[in-house]
Structure formats: structure tokens, C-alpha cells
Computed example of a mutant assay.
Amino acid sequence: MTPDWFAVVDATWPAARIETRGNLVLREGRGGGKRVSAASAMGPLSGAEIGAAEDAMRAMGQQPLFQLRPGNEDLDAELAERGYDIVDPVNIYAIAAERLTDIPIPRVTVFTLWEPLAIMRELWAQGGIGPGRLAVMDRTKGPKTGLLMRHRDKPGGVAFVAIHDSVAMLHALEIPPHQRRQGLGKWAMRGAAFWALDNGAQTLSVVCTKANEGANALYRSLGMEIVGEYHYRLLDEGRETT
């Protein structure tokens, strides 16, 4: 059975609050990023419903932002007419976790632990992953862990992994500039795969913006395949329109 990839994203990187109004899903992100702040549609939306969604997002202190999934083509066109810009097209990658456990991980290369250590929080902060996104990790239910990578006896990177419906999804992979090009991204994914299998997940997945060429190349090199796509439309209310 094919996983519901959007349900996996929502469960492993959850909004602070979700409200459903007919075919509309509203998310309150509280600084957790686009994934937890964007509205989405489960079916057709009228112009009045779009307007009400915009008002609701403004009331949350958020810019009007929609996540567009396959099947949302009419909404996509309507938002374009309203002046929304496309931002951050995203790939969803997945692979059978066992395919990444063929090579043993060198000792003291990847550690799995929760709660995060202070050094993990520091590494995330250096990469722009601040308190709002750490709060997302804290409120995630079900099996979850942090990954801490080491290289040459120094912290080499950090990531977060959580499981929903037998699928593990990795988020917030951050490797500091001086530790890049050492293969730590691959070891992070392999460490996540071992942890996933140990905790009942059969599939490892990740989301990645299409513009991140390095990350896309990493996931393809591991044999991961694109299993879904989406993009956002953002209304820039500071821009003059004609």
C-alpha cells in the first residue's frame, strides 16, 4: 500500500494547531517554517473560502501561504490570478530502509538520541533552525530521535527523524560548512535507516527543495526515488500590484 506522503509530512513535522473548514486545512506554525504554516485544500475552494483562509492566516500572524499538491491545479491557477508567487517547489524522496543498511556505520560516526544535546541545538541554530523549529520536534508524537554525526572527534552534523505509519522521515539535516564533503550526509541517511528499522519503520523518506542541488544529488546517489512533489504559493502583501 502506497503511503500517504502528506500525512507522513504532517505527522513527523506537525503544526502547532490544525483547523479544518470544509475542504480547507489551516495550519498555525508559530515559527516552524512553511510546512507547518501553509494552508492546503482537500477539494475545490471558492473565492470566498480563499478569502476567509487569507484572513485566518493573517489573524495567526502569518502571510497568506498555500501548499499546492497534485490535484490542486484549479486552486493553483486561482492563486496565480490573485497575485500569489510560486516558492520552494519540493521533492519527496523515499527508499526501502533496508537498502541503506548494507554497509556498517563506522563506530562513533552517528549517534541517535532524544532529547537533543546542547551541541545539537547549537548546530541547528548555526544553520538557521531556531526555537520555532525545535518546538516542532518537541511536539512530534510517536517514535522520534535526533542524529548527531561526528568526524575527526568533532561534531559533524545533526538531523531529526520521526516515524508515522511505518515510514520514517528525516528533517532538519544540518552539516556545518567546515564538515561538508566528508560523506556525513550519506552516513546520516544510513544512520536514520538503521534507527528506522529498529523502531518498526520499513521506509525512509525525506523532503527537499528542488533548488537544493547538493541535497538532491545526495539522495539520488543513495538510490532514493521521487515519490511526490508539491510547491507553495505565497502572497507578498508588501508588493505593489497593478
Rank of each mutant, 00 (worst) to 15 (best):
P70E: 08
M120R: 00
A196F: 10
E115H: 12
R180Y: 04
P116V: 03
R30P: 06
Q62C: 04
T209E: 13
A118N: 14
I18G: 05
L65K: 00
A193M: 07
D4H: 11
A201K: 09
N216H: 13
K34L: 14
E73T: 09
G146E: 05
D153C: 12
N212S: 13
T20M: 08
L197T: 09
T203P: 02
M120H: 01
E240H: 14
D102L: 11
G156W: 01
P116W: 03
W195A: 01
P143K: 08
Y230K: 06
L45Y: 01
A162P: 04
M57P: 01
G33H: 11
D85L: 12
R58I: 06
P104W: 06
M120W: 04
L222Q: 07
V36P: 04
E115A: 15
P106T: 13
R233F: 03
E213G: 14
E98T: 08
A16G: 11
G31W: 00
G191H: 03
K154D: 12
I18V: 15
I119H: 08
H171Q: 11
P3T: 10
T12C: 11
G200V: 03
V206F: 11
R239S: 14
Y230T: 05
Y219G: 03
E73W: 05
L134T: 13
D236F: 11
A56Q: 05
G51V: 04
R21G: 13
N72C: 09
P14W: 07
M60G: 01
W5D: 07
A53G: 13
G183L: 09
T209H: 10
A41G: 03
F194L: 13
N72T: 06
E122F: 06
A217Q: 08
G83E: 00
G146C: 15
R190S: 06
P70A: 08
G157L: 12
D88N: 12
Y93T: 01
A41W: 02
I163E: 03
Q62I: 04
A97Q: 04
A168K: 02
A41M: 01
R139Q: 09
Y219N: 07
E73P: 02
V158C: 10
D4N: 15
Q202H: 14
G61T: 09
P131V: 08
P143I: 06
E229M: 11
V227H: 00
A168P: 05
S46A: 13
R107Q: 11
G61M: 10
K34Y: 15
M189P: 05
N72F: 04
G142S: 10
G183P: 02
V108K: 12
P176E: 09
V158D: 01
M189K: 09
Y93Q: 07
D4K: 08
D102K: 12
Y93V: 06
E54L: 01
L68G: 00
G214I: 12
A52T: 01
R139P: 00
K144H: 12
W114S: 07
V8P: 00
V206C: 13
Q63N: 08
A15P: 00
Q67M: 15
F160D: 02
